[in-house]
């Protein structure tokens, strides 16, 4: 760590997760500082996705604590965490297939305040639609989705679905953005655009946590790196320093020749 005191937006302390009998994540510490990109790396089955699910609330932590901006969210449900400012994407891209692109983003944008269910019950057709929230417009603009706003998500290309998913996450106005293998399924040009977007978002103060196999991409965007193996932290620190260690890199899977993003 550098000398400057960075208060992490999201921090996990000795978090363990058990699935059935197996301890998948074994007392892991992780800090995700604001305005920077942190990458979570490790071989297949190291527990990255499980840790990810635990941080976002999809899986309960067996022990340990998770704090968001100093507030303990260990027991909060995934939707509460989302409203508090943790947004995420999924390894297998998750969009709402029967909704249009714009509606997908609106679902993300709308759930800061509670839905007035009783009022919604007998509302007339007229009183129905307020305008599209501004953030949806701006996110669509930013991600180049304006032309597709009325398309149903189910017909889109995988790469476009990824963008929609990221857009949906951004629309929740998060403090922490967690991306699970965002570059998989993207071609070179698209992953260049993703890289630029990530750097831009970080520079605006967002804390970004990234699970990624592609160490080239990690090296280019991430300041911090946390390497997991068998559920434990193998190494964590500045990514430039860690990526210079050949043993670590080979363990994560980088020794083999260039990996094609299949």
């Amino acid at each position: 760590m550098t000398a400057s005191i960075v208060v992490p937006a999201l921090s996990a302390r000795s978090v363990s997760v058990r699935l059935g009998d197996a301890l998948i994540v074994d007392s892991v510490d992780l800090d995700v500082p604001s305005g920077q990109i942190t990458a979570l790396v490790g071989p297949n089955g190291a527990g990255k996705s499980t840790l990810f699910d635990c941080l976002s609330g999809a899986l309960p932590a067996e022990s340990g604590s998770i704090r968001l901006d100093g507030r303990d969210v260990t027991r909060s449900s995934p939707d509460q965490r989302s409203r508090l400012g943790i947004a995420r994407t999924f390894q297998h891209v998750s969009v709402f297939p029967t909704l249009t692109v714009e509606e997908n983003l609106r679902v993300g944008a709308e759930h800061r305040e509670n839905l007035q269910l009783l009022r919604a019950l007998f509302r007339g057709r007229r009183a129905d639609e307020p305008r599209t929230p501004e953030i949806v417009e701006s996110v669509m603009q930013r991600l180049g989705l304006l032309g597709l706003r009325h398309e149903r998500a189910q017909g889109l290309e995988t790469s476009t679905m990824r963008l929609v998913e990221i857009g949906r996450a951004l629309c929740t106005r998060p403090k922490v953005l967690m991306l699970d293998e965002p570059a998989s399924g993207l071609d070179d040009a698209e992953s260049d655009r993703l890289r630029a977007l990530l750097l831009e978002l970080a520079s605006e103060g967002l804390a970004i946590l990234l699970v990624e196999h592609d160490l080239t991409l990690v090296g280019e965007v991430a300041q911090h790196l946390c390497a997991l193996d068998h559920g434990q932290v193998l190494a964590s620190g500045r990514s430039a320093e860690l990526l210079a260690l050949p043993d670590l890199v080979s363990l994560i899977g980088g020794t083999r020749s260039r990996r094609a993003a299949r």
Binding site: P78, D79, S82, F90, F96, T98, L99, N104
Partner: peptide, 16 residues
Amino acid sequence: QAVRDDERGALACGVN
């Protein structure tokens, strides 16, 4: 509709 389509995703969007 979001919940019906993908519950995980809906939770991640903050849908209760």
